[in-house]
Amino acid sequence: MPRTSAQQQAPATPDPQEGDPTHDALLERLARAAAGYYRDLAAAAAVQGLTMTQAKMLILLRQPLPMRALAGLLACDASNITGLVDRLEAHGLVSRHPNPADRRIKTVVATEKGLEAVQLIRADMRATSAAFNRLDDEGRRDLYELLGRLHPDQPA
C-alpha cells in the first residue's frame, strides 16, 4: 500500500515510553529544529534586504572578528567572506579594519546600523520566539545548558 504524503513527511520519532531516543532520532530532531530556525532567520533577514548568510555573519559580529575566523564560523571558504563583507560594507552594516599587529589581517566590525539590523531580525523571528515561549523558565535553562554541551569547543 503506498504511503500518503503525510506519512512520508512525518519521520519516526521515539515514543518516550519505549526508551531512550536513538542517535538517529536525536539527529532528526536537531535537524528539524535547525531547519525551523534557519527558515525563520532567512525570512526575517529578507525583510531587512539580507540573505540568511549575511544575517548569520552579522549575528556572529557581537565582537570584532578576523575575516578568517568568520570563514571558520560560517564553514565557508575565506574567499567567500570577502564578497559577503563587501556587500554588508556597501550597506553600512560592517566595517573592515587592519589588525595593528599584522596589517594583512582584516578585522570585521558590525556598525551601529548592523547591530540594529540584528535586533530587528531577531525581533522578527516569530516562529522561533513562539517555540521558545512554549518552554517555561526551567525548560529554557535546560535547553541552553544542553545546547552548550553539544559543541563546547565553539565560542558562545
Rank of each mutant, 00 (worst) to 15 (best):
141 R>S: 12
23 H>Y: 14
146 L>I: 11
26 L>G: 14
29 R>F: 13
107 T>V: 14
46 A>V: 07
89 E>T: 02
28 E>K: 13
3 R>F: 13
124 D>Y: 07
125 M>D: 14
118 V>H: 11
114 G>P: 03
133 N>S: 15
13 T>Y: 06
94 V>G: 00
42 A>D: 12
77 D>W: 02
21 P>M: 10
56 K>L: 07
45 A>M: 08
19 G>V: 11
49 G>M: 08
13 T>W: 03
63 Q>M: 04
65 L>D: 00
71 A>F: 01
6 A>W: 06
153 D>I: 07
117 A>F: 04
60 L>N: 09
42 A>K: 11
85 V>C: 01
44 A>L: 03
73 L>V: 02
72 G>P: 01
95 S>A: 08
37 Y>S: 02
80 N>Q: 08
58 L>K: 00
124 D>R: 14
149 R>K: 11
74 L>Y: 01
72 G>S: 04
148 G>K: 07
78 A>M: 06
144 Y>I: 13
148 G>I: 12
155 P>D: 12
130 A>W: 09
100 P>W: 07
10 A>H: 08
103 R>Y: 05
127 A>P: 12
147 L>A: 14
4 T>G: 14
91 H>D: 13
105 I>P: 01
94 V>N: 00
49 G>L: 09
104 R>V: 13
52 M>C: 05
44 A>K: 00
81 I>P: 00
137 D>F: 11
11 P>D: 06
12 A>R: 06
138 E>A: 15
23 H>T: 14
13 T>C: 05
13 T>I: 07
63 Q>T: 06
56 K>G: 04
146 L>F: 10
53 T>L: 09
138 E>Y: 12
117 A>K: 01
85 V>Q: 00
131 A>K: 04
116 E>G: 11
42 A>C: 11
11 P>F: 05
44 A>G: 11
70 L>K: 00
97 H>N: 08
49 G>F: 10
121 I>V: 15
100 P>Y: 10
50 L>E: 03
94 V>A: 00
121 I>L: 12
129 S>V: 15
146 L>Q: 11
29 R>E: 15
106 K>E: 06
68 R>E: 09
105 I>H: 04
73 L>Q: 07
121 I>F: 10
118 V>C: 14
92 G>L: 02
51 T>E: 09
86 D>P: 04
78 A>H: 10
59 I>F: 07
49 G>P: 07
95 S>I: 05
126 R>I: 15
65 L>I: 01
47 V>M: 09
38 Y>C: 12
82 T>I: 08
42 A>I: 09
52 M>A: 13
55 A>S: 05
152 P>W: 03
12 A>Y: 09
92 G>F: 01
77 D>I: 05
98 P>W: 03
65 L>E: 02
67 M>L: 02
68 R>V: 10
134 R>I: 04
142 D>P: 01
156 A>T: 09
152 P>S: 08
118 V>G: 10
128 T>G: 06
34 A>W: 15
131 A>I: 04
85 V>F: 00
70 L>M: 02
92 G>C: 10
154 Q>W: 08
31 A>V: 13
107 T>K: 04
42 A>Y: 02
58 L>S: 01
147 L>H: 08
95 S>D: 09
130 A>V: 11
152 P>Y: 03
7 Q>F: 06
111 T>L: 04
150 L>D: 07
97 H>T: 13
32 R>I: 11
93 L>P: 00
16 P>M: 09
46 A>F: 03
57 M>V: 06
11 P>I: 10
28 E>L: 15
63 Q>Y: 04
15 D>K: 04
128 T>A: 15
124 D>S: 15
103 R>K: 09
